[in-house]
Design a protein around this nucleic acid. Structure first.
Lengths: 335, 335
DNA sequence: CCAGGCCATGTAAAGCCTTACATTACTGTT
DNA sequence: AACAGTAATGTAAGGCTTTACATGGCCTGG
C-alpha cells in the first residue's frame, strides 16, 4: 500500500495525497475528505524513509548517548536537554551504551553504527571518552552536528564540561576546614575515564589540603552495579579495617550504597566516618543522612548541550565552542 | 556526495560500492581497498533513508516510550529490555513522554508523530494509557509491531502486565498481620492511570483487611517532581496532623521523599509511622530505613516485552499475547 | 582443449515520496 | 461574454540505495 494506490482509490494524483497528508490547507475541503477517507480505511501512512529521502532528510529527531542510563545523573541530564529540544519541536531519544563501556572498540563500533543508521539530525555524546581525531566514528558522525558533554576537552568539537578540578578543590577546602586528614576513595573502575580524571585532580590537590590517601583506603567497585558495590563494601568492612576520616565517593550512587554498608556495620555517618559524594543527584538530598556532595549542574549541562546542538543544526557552519560550567559544593549532613 | 560519485571516483559501479560497504566479503581485496580509500577520503556514508527505502525498511532500531525517565523504575525497565535487544542486534532508544503526560491529546499526538517518523522496527509503550481502539495512534502505529507494558489490559494488543491487585493484597495481608489499621495513602496525581488503578484495588481490598482510609490521610503530590512531593509533605506535616499507622506510597520515589519529610519532622520510621512503597527500585534497599515495598519485577517486565516484540518483528502474524508477571512483597525495615 | 562452474563486477529496475512546474477549474470584473 | 487572476490539481523528475539478473574472466577436470 503506497501513495499511488491511495491516489488511485481516491481518484486523485499522488501529489494531492501528499499534500492532503502534509499540508491539508492546500487541498480543497471535499478532496481532502475524500482522500482522508481512503487513508483511514486503509490505515495508510507515508513511508518515512521515502519521505525523508525525498525531502532531503530532516527528521526532527536528535539522540543523546549516555554511558549508564540507570544512574540518575544521566536521567537528569537527559531531562534537561529534553526540555529544550521539546520546546523547539525536536524529539530526543536516548541511547544507552552502558553494557559495552568496558570495551572501547565496541563502543566506537556501536556509535558508528548508530551514526550510520542516522535517523536523526544531531547527536549529543555524554560521559563517553571520544575516540581520537581520525577515528572512523568521527568520520561517520561528522556529517551531522555533534556535541560532547564532559569528556576530555582536547578535541576540536563543541563541548560542554564541568570544571571538575574546582569541584574537588571546593570539597577539599571543606574537608580541611572540618579537620579531616585521612581520605578514603571509592571509585567504580580503574580504567574508566571518570576515575582517572578525578584521580588526577585528587593527586594534584591533596597535598595543598594535607589529605592523606592510602591504597587500603581506596576502594574499587562498579559504576554500573550498586549490588556489586554494596557487596564489595560489605566484604571490605567485614574485615574491620582501620577507616579513614572521610570517604570520597566518585558519584552519589556509590556514596549511597557505601553509606548503607557503613551503616550496616554500625559506623555512624558523619560521626564515625564522613562521606562525600559527587553529582548531587536528586535523591542525594533525601537520603538519610542527606549527602554532602559536589554538585554538577546536571540539568544545565543537558540544556547547554541542547542549545549548542540546536544552533549547530540550524547553522552548521558555526565554529566549535567550549563551555565550562562551574560545580558547587553542597554541604548537608554526611560530611 | 552520493554512491554514484564514489563509484565514479573509484572507477567501479555503484553496486560494488554498495557491496564494499555492506558486505565487504563479497568484494575482491584490491577493489575493496580502492573503494574504501575513496570512501574515507570523502568521509562518505550511505544515506540511511535511501538505504532503508531500498532494502524495504529494516532499521534495527526499536523504541521504548516511557512516561517518566527520571523515575528509576523506568530506567530499570529499560535496562531489562535493552539487554535483550542488544543480544539480538537491535538498538533500543528510549523516548520520554514525561512532560506531556497531563495532556492526553498531546500524548496521542506525539506518539502519532513518533510513529510516523517511524525510524524503527518496533515499539514498546510503557506505563502509558493507550488511546482506544480506533485512535489515530493505533492506526499510525499499526504497521509496526507494538507491545504494551502495564496499562489497562483490555485492548487487543500484546501486553505484559503485573498483577497489581495481588501485590496490594500481599501488602495488606502484611499490614494486618503487623496490626496496622489506619492507612495513609500518598499518590502523585488524581487523574493518572496509575493512581486510579491502585485506588481501585485498595478500595476493593481494604475491608477484607480492616484498613481504614480517610481523606485527610490521603495525600496528593506528584510523580514527576520529588521536590514538589517533599514540599507538600512538609507542609502537611507542619500542621502536626494526626497520622495514620502506615503510609502506602504509590511508588518508591514518593516513599523515599515522604520518608525524609517524616524523619525531618521527628517521626521515627517504622516506630511512629510505618511506610510501604511500591516498585522496589534499586535504591529502595539502600535507603535508610530500607524500604518495605511491593516489588514489581521490573527488569523482567522489560525483558518480557522485548522478547514478545522480538518475536513479533520476525513473525508479524503472531496472535497477540498477554503475559502477567507476579509482584512480591519485600519486607525490610520501613514497615 | 573445452565444457561447466564459480567469482567479481556491472546494469538497471524498484522502492516511495516531494515538489517545481504545467495545466485546468473556477471567481469575479468589466 | 471575455479575460485576468487565483486556487486546485496533475505530471514527472529527482532523491539514493539495494539487488536480481546479466556479463565476463578464470579455473578445474575430463
Amino acid at each position: 500500500m503506497n501513495i499511488k494506490d491511495i491516489a488511485k482509490k481516491a481518484g486523485v494524483s499522488t501529489a494531492t495525497v501528499s499534500r492532503a497528508l502534509n499540508n491539508p490547507e492546500k487541498v480543497k475541503k471535499d478532496t481532502l475528505e475524500k482522500v482522508m477517507q481512503v487513508v483511514d480505511d486503509n490505515r495508510y501512512s507515508l513511508n518515512p524513509f521515502a519521505r525523508s529521502l525525498a525531502s532531503s532528510g530532516r527528521t526532527n529527531n536528535v539522540v543523546l548517548v549516555v554511558p549508564n542510563s540507570v544512574n540518575p545523573f544521566f536521567s537528569q541530564l537527559a531531562s534537561g536537554a529534553e526540555s529544550l529540544f521539546d520546546e523547539y519541536g525536536y524529539y530526543m531519544h536516548v541511547y544507552n551504551i552502558g553494557r559495552h563501556l568496558r570495551d572501547p572498540g565496541r563502543v566506537t563500533e556501536i556509535l558508528e553504527e548508530v551514526a550510520n543508521e542516522g535517523f536523526f539530525d544531531g547527536l549529543i555524546l555524554s560521559g563517553i571518552s571520544y575516540p581520537g581525531e581520525n577515528s572512523p566514528l568521527r568520520m561517520a558522525v561528522l556529517n551531522k552536528p555533534v556535541v560532547l558533554i564532559e569528556p576530555n576537552p582536547d578535541s576540536r568539537m563543541d563541548c560542554v564540561l564541568v570544571d571538575e578540578r574546582t569541584g574537588i578543590w571546593l570539597a577539599f577546602e571543606h574537608l580541611k576546614k572540618k579537620g579531616y586528614t585521612r581520605l578514603g576513595l571509592i571509585h567504580g573502575g580503574k580504567n574508566l575515564d571518570l576515575t582517572t580524571r578525578k584521580m588526577h585532580y585528587i593527586r594534584e590537590l591533596q597535598e595543598e589540603f594535607s589529605l592523606e590517601t592510602r591504597p587500603e583506603w581506596t576502594l574499587e567497585t562498579s559504576y554500573d552495579s550498586v549490588g556489586l558495590t554494596y557487596n564489595l563494601m560489605n566484604r571490605y568492612l567485614t574485615g574491620g579495617p582501620e577507616l579513614p576520616d572521610v570517604f570520597f565517593a566518585f558519584n552519589d550512587l556509590l556514596a549511597i550504597t557505601a553509606a548503607r554498608a557503613l551503616l550496616d556495620h554500625g559506623h555512624r555517618i558523619p560521626q564515625d566516618v564522613a562521606l562525600l559524594g559527587s553529582d548531587d543527584i536528586q535523591l542525594a538530598r533525601y537520603f538519610n543522612p542527606a549527602l554532602t556532595t559536589i554538585k554538577t549542574p546536571t540539568e544545565d549541562l543537558g540544556k547547554t548541550a541542547a542549545r549548542i546542538l540546536l544552533n549547530k543544526m540550524t547553522n552548521p557552519t558555526l565554529p566549535p565552542q567550549r563551555i565550562f560550567l562551574p560545580p558547587t559544593l553542597i554541604v548537608r549532613e554526611s560530611c
